[in-house]
Amino acid sequence: MTAKINVTLKKSIMDPQGTAVKDAALSMGFDAVDDVRIGKHIEVKIKDGVSREEAEKQVELLCQKLLANPVMENFSFEITED
């Protein structure tokens, strides 16, 4: 199994990177762009033999403790069969 994790900034947190990319996109003529938010995509390979339940539990904790800073980020993940 592989856990596909997305870490994004909370809505109230400013995203300077996203703003810079948005401005560049607009200046290049991509006028359909309204806003850009940049986050991280992380893939975590799960050991063979681990149950889906255990994997979900550990990935949830991994996100809380390491991959996301709950002070400013949200996370979501899905676990897929390889």
């Binding site: 300077p16 990177q17 810079a20 990319v21 560049a24 200046s27 290049m28 940049i38």
Partner: peptide, 14 residues
């Protein structure tokens, strides 16, 4: 340039 946001130099080249 442009804060090096996204990738270094990626926005400046445009």
């Amino acid at each position: 340039s442009y804060g090096d946001y996204l990738r270094c130099g990626a926005i400046a080249r445009f």
